[in-house]
Every structure is written in structure tokens, then in C-alpha cells.
């Protein structure tokens, strides 16, 4: 192959022909730059059609994740030495604003498609058979941390109260006004645990006293803290962040 310098090969083409090509080139580059500007600017991204498309894709991703979810696949568990210290605090408010829940008057309210709707007190919940796990908590922001949580296996609790396991959703209300909901398949996963202890201590307020639903197969914001009420339903309940645009399934 004969090699020529770039300059000469370019010079060969400097003629009347190149001008039309350059014009076209300019036009095309201009168009793609315009498309880029539209994309990153607000014109297109704030457009109602685009928002609808993105939400539709998020729903589609809910379906894809439900399909990918394997109810027997376990999240990796770690040795005690892997536990992150200090475990990060994360909420939509500051650490000094953590809601304090009064243990003595606390009651867990149940509603919806549940047979036994009698509220549960903490001593009653503490008396249930307990299990422990050391798993990785992954935040939708990207960071992760390993912690140890203990409590009652959620599927055991749901069976005990006679929750309709054929229902689609379980919704949660929390003492800090937070709301979220999960799918039944995840609720029944063996590692989904209604926890009362963190690192073998009673769950401190900053980690969700009196209870946090620990779901190692879901992102952190799907692990509600300070739970005061839960309900089983077939009507999509959403949740605070989910209603703002975060993906509902958010499974790991």
C-alpha cells in the first residue's frame, strides 16, 4: 500500500468538491450539536413526552427486574471482620433530627389483606424467633456498607399474621413520615428480615429504632426504618422516592 502524507492527501481534495462536502459536514455537525444541546438543556428533557417515555421505561425495568429476581438466590454474606465501621447514617434529614420513637407506647399497625390485624408491641416482636445476617447495604447513590442486622424473618412474620401471600404489594409507613413498598416475592425472600438489632445492639435511633426492614436484595431506600404500619394490597402503593421518579423495584 502506497503511503502518502495526510497533508498531500488532503491537498488533493481541496477543490470545488470539498466545499460542498464541507458545507454538508458543517450542516451535519451543526445538527448533531443542536441535538446535543437539546438533550442536555431543559427544552427536551423537561418535555412531557420525554418524561412519559422515561417513566414508561422505568416501569418496564420494574417488570424486567421482577423477571430477573430469583427467590432462592441469596445475597452474599460476610464475616464480622468485614463490617463497615462506622456504619453511615443516611436519611432525607440530618442526624440530629432523627425521630425518637417511644418504645413503651410503640405499636406496629397492620392493615389490608392480613387476617390478624392486631397491632404488635415491641416485647411481642422481640419474643419471635430471631435470625442474623451480615450483608451489604447498597445505596442508590452508589456507596455501600456492610452491617449486621438481627430480627424475625419477614416471611415467618407474614405467615404468622396471615398475610395474603398471593397479594402483589406490601406498603410501609414510618415514624419519620417516610413511605415505601415492595413486591411480595421480595417480601418472602429468606434474607428479608424485620430487624430490631444492629451489630447485636438494640437498633439505635439513627439506624431506625424500633425496626428496620432489612432487604439485602434491594437498594437502601427500599429498606424502611422506624416502621409504624404496614399493609398488604393489590393496589400499587408507590412510596416517597418512587413517586418522585426513583425506580420502584430497585432490586439488587
Amino acid at each position: 500500500m502506497k503511503k502518502r502524507s495526510m497533508e498531500t492527501s488532503l491537498a488533493d481534495h481541496r477543490g470545488k468538491l470539498i466545499r460542498s462536502i464541507e458545507r454538508r459536514l458543517f450542516l451535519k455537525q451543526g445538527l448533531s450539536l443542536g441535538a446535543l444541546a437539546l438533550l442536555s438543556g431543559c427544552e427536551l428533557t423537561d418535555g412531557e413526552g420525554v418524561q412519559k417515555m422515561l417513566l414508561a421505561m422505568s416501569r418496564w425495568n420494574d417488570g424486567a427486574q421482577a423477571w430477573l429476581f430469583n427467590s432462592t438466590k441469596l445475597a452474599p454474606e460476610y464475616p464480622e471482620s468485614a463490617i463497615t465501621k462506622p456504619f453511615p447514617f443516611n436519611a432525607y434529614y440530618g442526624e440530629d433530627e432523627v425521630r425518637l420513637v417511644d418504645a413503651a407506647s410503640y405499636k406496629l399497625e397492620l392493615s389490608g389483606l392480613i387476617r390478624e390485624k392486631k397491632p404488635w408491641t415491641l416485647p411481642e416482636l422481640y419474643a419471635l424467633p430471631q435470625t442474623s445476617q451480615i450483608t451489604r447495604h447498597i445505596c442508590v447513590e452508589g456507596w455501600s456498607a456492610i452491617g449486621k442486622w438481627s430480627g424475625v424473618r419477614f416471611s415467618d412474620f407474614l405467615a404468622r399474621v396471615g398475610a395474603d401471600a398471593t397479594a402483589k404489594y406490601i406498603g410501609f409507613e414510618c415514624a419519620d413520615d417516610y413511605t415505601t413498598s415492595i413486591d411480595m416475592a421480595t417480601a418472602l425472600h429468606p434474607q428479608t428480615v424485620l430487624t430490631f438489632r444492629f451489630a447485636d445492639q438494640i437498633l439505635p435511633p439513627k439506624y431506625g429504632f424500633p425496626m428496620k426492614l432489612r432487604i439485602p436484595t434491594k437498594l437502601g431506600f427500599k429498606n424502611p426504618k422506624h416502621i409504624t404500619a404496614m399493609y398488604v394490597t393489590n393496589e400499587y402503593p408507590g412510596g416517597y422516592w418512587e413517586d418522585q421518579g426513583y425506580n420502584w423495584f430497585s432490586g439488587s
Binding site: E95, A104, I202
Partner: peptide, 20 residues
């Protein structure tokens, strides 16, 4: 355990005082 928690839960928060 539950009865004393209301009063001692403050002690678990290191550094900052929760409940504001």
C-alpha cells in the same frame, strides 16, 4: 428491655443528639 429503651435510646447516637 422495651420499657427502658425510651430513655436510653439517646445514648446510642454518637456525636449528635437525635430528636430535634
Amino acid at each position: 428491655v422495651a420499657a427502658i429503651l425510651g430513655t436510653v435510646s439517646l445514648a446510642f447516637a454518637a456525636g449528635t443528639t437525635p430528636g430535634k
